[in-house]
Design a protein around this nucleic acid. Sequence first.
DNA 1: GCGGACAGGATCGTATACGATCCGTGCCCA
DNA 2: TGGGCACGGATCGTATACGATCCTGTCCGC
Lengths: 229, 229
Amino acid sequence: MNHVIAPPAATAEQIAESLTEAVHEHRILPDMKLAEDEVGETFGVGRTIVRQALRILAQEGLVTLERNRGAFVSRPSIREAREVFEARALLEPATAHAAATRAAAGDIERLEAHIADEHAALAAGEAGRALSLSGQFHVEIARIADQGTIEGFIRQLVARSSLVIAIYWRRRSALCESHAHHALLDAFRRRDAEEASELMKGHLVDLLSQLDLRDQATPPRSLREALDR
Amino acid sequence: MNHVIAPPAATAEQIAESLTEAVHEHRILPDMKLAEDEVGETFGVGRTIVRQALRILAQEGLVTLERNRGAFVSRPSIREAREVFEARALLEPATAHAAATRAAAGDIERLEAHIADEHAALAAGEAGRALSLSGQFHVEIARIADQGTIEGFIRQLVARSSLVIAIYWRRRSALCESHAHHALLDAFRRRDAEEASELMKGHLVDLLSQLDLRDQATPPRSLREALDR
DNA sequence: GCGGACAGGATCGTATACGATCCGTGCCCA
DNA sequence: TGGGCACGGATCGTATACGATCCTGTCCGC
């Protein structure tokens, strides 16, 4: 199945990014073990590099390192999930505001292409990829806002959101975000910064409301989940 | 066994924290080289650990890794400096708002003690330590707000601010922050969240205005600085 | 006298080896 | 029969060794 990504050795950052992408696409899920040897063989590098990559991901909150046990994909607690969206609520509306002000024609085009890709992926049944692109859309907005530092934070928060969604998403069917992203794009086209900010704020609230953050299932989950895989 | 035990070995996180503290206290300054062997000997560990610590710091933006050249303390660009304070402006007022709402009696006491320490350090002529405590005050507020994720971001931003201050601070004499922190503490005592938010916002603007962010000195600086050490 | 090439030294990049720790399993005993 | 203990395998933690890269100082040719 997993054929070679091996030959041309990779850097720690590249591996971290590959794994992050896999998280975005829900190809790797919370509690999954990332054994150093296994990852190393997959990418054709030694454990030294893998270890560095895992440390990067750990600092971003995507994996949890347990001493003498190994690295596991993080399972965000309910509290953590709320924190992530709390942080996004502080950063992203203002960022969308700035982006709407600064957006050049090329930026708009890129966003359009991005949404088109998202639709194409959905049409092709590539749900994971669609999800990933959907998250990337937010990062793209931060990029347009031209605030590298904040973009980094948002990038991390979006990645962690992918984990949150993997655990707490109510129904995987309805991917109603298309509307929200389209509306945002429209606001960008009109350079309506206030509207963009409000739309982003509402979008995040919507996302959060789609999550099931009652603390019911967590304790049994950690046991059951480990079994049924 | 091991005869040479300076400090009895440390973990990567501990080393990273020690170095961060040194940055806060302006004991290590931008462009300073952090040679792996040197750091390793200092902390009594091998290069493997040091490398991990440096990578942590690199991800936080405190050090810059140059391939085959080594690790250097970052010299934030003017743009970066603005970005850092932009991010703080988004996060900290809202965080202060939340903190003022949640602050328990113990929290207030801790903040009081913190300010007292700061004064004591200043009185003792320990400018570096005073500076460090001054930054830590902001982190402490985030801790009270009980938002771990945001606290992490603020922690990083405060650390990077220390580098910015090291480079761009106008006059090292006037440390007029005492007023601002006192005022914040007062707002916390009164549970006046709105006021706390406004004070924090103003405080950050003040800090930023104390910086000399005209892009005059930077190009010659990077050359001259390297020479006079 | 000056510029370019080359060699030596130092430092980093990566893999690998060895020791430490933990988990699982099977045995033994109560 | 059930619980405790010891052993073995697997995996991680760290140091070290070796190769690669870059910097620097020197030497030679122009």
